[in-house]
Design a protein around this nucleic acid. Structure first.
Lengths: 204, 204
DNA sequence: AATGAATATGACATGGCGTCAATATTATTA
DNA sequence: TAATAATATTGACGCCATGTCATATTCATT
């Protein structure tokens, strides 16, 4: 009675096919970019039939979504760092580290992130995935600012949501610059500078 | 001897065809977005032959480029506002106005800007056009910061180029939010808040 | 061994793109 | 005016990618 779905030879075959396709897709995406990558290339590389791709995935976008899950998860982790500073300096330390980690992700996952960026412009599914990450960060930053304001650390006259968005936007755009290899300064210098500007502007 | 190119009946016919196509293209773009818009739709609307489109333009991208020229020019104008403040307060005034004008552009030209944003993700030609505008702004802001630092108005320990990019990124992302109608605060409130944060962070 | 369920396949219909040889229109020349 | 040259327009054609579906194959159960 071992028909537990796994161990089942059929499901195993299915899983293997799926995995072969995913790996082939990754290679094709990295070689040709999101737009030029085609299903045909992937199924050839994976040695499976054309229609098979559509059995396992809804199309290129879906394939990339699955390939990005790992990276997505890392972003969510960074967004969840706790934040209860007791002084302006401590706040700056925490924020600097978070910014640094965030930008380092861009470097570490540059290749897949490049594909991701291309896809954001084309696919609403992918675009929504990124938007969710952005909102997660912005919400988190909003809470952090509100906390700081309540504890008399930050300027209370500024609308915390507007500030949070603006701050994240700076981070995000630098992220994409790093992904595209268009940054001319080190990640460390960027993180230090923008954090200093931000905390000086916001904290008392 | 009036073969001055204009007045010439052939050139006139050509110009009319071109114009018909441009107007049709604008409608199709606005109705269907950049990606779904097709040359076929446009030439039908313009009542011209398929190949004719490729006589006048290189393709969808080229068509949109021409349609955006007007908006582009307006951005370049905003980027060229002069900046020689004598105090922190004066600097804040000028910057606030520039940010405000910049974001107001997003509201005024929202429809075409939406198409533009979609195209940036797909077309390298369009993407380069926007990058040029971005670099123009960033260069201008860099000069402004350097001026302020030299005159003892701004914190000299910050790298002005990194700060300039970061500041423009905040502006740019808010621009796209406004374009997408995803902003929940007024342009005025956004401009005031981010400018206040920025000038407090940068100026002495 | 037979039956049915899960999985895989590739031919097909659809639709957009960009090209090009052919056609139509306008200007110039004899 | 007629012939010729230059310019402008046209749509059929070849190419390629997509997503679907009827068919074939593989595996589990009886």
């Amino acid at each position: 009675m071992s028909n537990d779905k796994i161990g089942d030879k059929r499901h195993l075959r299915s899983a293997v096919t799926r995995q072969k396709l995913l790996e082939a897709a990754r290679e094709v995406f990295l070689d040709d970019g999101f737009q030029k990558a085609t299903i045909s290339q992937m199924i050839k590389k994976a040695n499976i039939g054309y229609g098979t791709a559509y059995v396992h995935f809804e199309g290129k976008e879906d394939l990339l979504c699955v390939l990005m899950e790992n990276v997505m998860a890392q972003f969510y982790e960074i967004a969840e760092i706790s934040f209860f500073p007791k002084s302006k300096d401590e706040a700056e330390q925490i924020i600097k580290k978070q910014t640094h980690d965030f930008l380092k992700m861009a470097e570490a996952e540059r290749n897949m992130m490049q594909i991701f960026e291309q896809a954001i412009g084309v696919s609403s599914v992918i675009s929504d995935k990124w938007k969710a990450i952005r909102e997660k960060f912005i919400h988190r930053i909003s809470m952090d600012i509100a906390y700081s304001q309540q504890n008399g650390l930050a300027r209370a006259e500024l609308n915390y949501e507007i500030v949070a968005r603006g701050w994240f936007f700076t981070n995000e755009m630098y992220l994409w610059e790093i992904v595209r290899n268009e940054h001319h300064r080190s990640v460390e210098e960027i993180a230090n500078t923008i954090t200093s500007l931000y905390t000086t502007g916001l904290y008392l």
